[in-house]
């Protein structure tokens, strides 16, 4: 990036202007995310820096909005915050309920998407796979088709996808469905929708890892008497694990951040964090949303760090050295 020795004065000026422009663009990218963090510690109900905050007056800062996250949605008993108090908050706080829903929906959606996606990616990266391009196009399309279209289609279909509660099907699947025995307004419906949205990410990351995978290792394992299952778990899986994990993380984040499908197909019970935030921003905007946002930023920093470490490990294993 150093200037060449023959650079003219104009080029020197341009060089520093260019670096300044890049700094500004990085600021545009990262600034809005960082600005949320100090704002969430405000002691007022405003969405901007108050005078007290700008003068670093301790009275301008507080944890009251983080406290709101624990107490919103249930009557708070007076008295010390002991075990029973925390138990009440854990069981009744609106935000904590939303966090639990988001976590469980995300987890099951990720398991579904990662299992099906990894197996499919193994098939897709075989050279003899027929119709590879067409099938890839179909499997990636949930990422390309606008979420509103997917949500509209699913809301029509889920309302009709019902089993009679008193039938044999209802006895087997009823507990996963809504009271009326439908996919609409049920946890299963939301999990399936999020699994579909996560599949493209799993396919992309796992096929990318498999593209550097030496297929003769599979033949070597077979020739030494390993059956397909042993070959997969002992030979293939350890090598492509970084790709699987980062695909799974992408799928989890997709589900954890998804709101449109939830708005269209979920019932009032399936309140998730993004849905709670979406309604909060639309109706009564309070700095409690900034407190949630701060927590989510910290989570995404940790996820990003994990994925980066995995990527480097995978590159090292495949012998791709960073230049």
């Amino acid at each position: 990036m150093a200037l060449p020795i023959y650079a003219s004065p104009l080029e020197r000026v341009w060089h520093y202007a260019y670096i300044a422009i890049c700094v500004l663009i990085f600021l545009f990218l990262i600034g809005p995310i960082l600005v949320v963090i100090p704002l969430s510690f405000t002691s007022d109900a405003y969405f901007s820096f108050t005078d007290k905050m700008l003068h670093f007056d301790p009275a301008g800062y507080s944890l009251r909005w983080y406290d709101t996250l624990l107490t919103l949605g249930h009557p708070v008993p007076e008295g010390p915050r002991d075990g029973t108090w925390w138990k009440l908050a854990w069981e009744h706080s609106t935000w904590i309920q939303a966090a639990k829903n988001s976590f469980w929906v995300g987890l099951w959606a990720t398991i579904m998407a990662t299992t099906l996606g990894t197996i499919a990616a193994l098939g897709l990266s075989r050279p003899e796979m027929p119709g590879r391009r067409m099938i890839m196009a179909v499997l990636i399309s949930p990422m390309i088709v606008p979420i509103i279209i997917i949500a509209v289609g699913m809301s029509f279909f889920y309302a009709k996808a019902c089993v009679a509660p008193d039938s044999a099907m209802g006895a087997i699947f009823g507990w996963m469905l809504s009271n009326k025995g439908c996919l609409a307004n049920s946890y299963l419906g939301v999990i399936i929708a999020h699994a579909v949205l996560g599949i493209p990410f799993v396919i992309i990351t796992v096929t990318a890892t498999l593209s550097g995978f030496d297929q003769s290792l599979i033949r070597a394992a077979h020739s030494m008497g390993a059956n397909p299952r042993v070959t997969f778990f002992k030979v293939v899986m350890p090598l492509i694990l970084p790709g699987i994990i980062s695909g799974a993380l992408f799928a989890f984040v997709t589900s954890f951040d998804e709101v449109v499908a939830v708005l269209f197909i979920a019932g009032p019970e399936q309140q998730t964090i993004p849905r709670q935030m979406f309604n909060g921003i639309r109706e009564a905007i309070s700095p409690a949303i900034l407190a949630v946002a701060t927590i989510l930023v910290i989570i995404s920093v940790m996820l990003l760090a994990t994925v980066e470490l995995l990527r480097r490990r995978s590159e090292r294993l495949r012998g791709v050295t960073p230049r």
Partner: peptide, 17 residues
């Protein structure tokens, strides 16, 4: 990559602020 991994709703909230 950090904005890429950060919740869409967080980024939208930030722009409102």
């Amino acid at each position: 990559l950090l904005p890429f991994w950060t919740s869409l709703l967080v980024r939208t909230t930030a722009w409102i602020a």
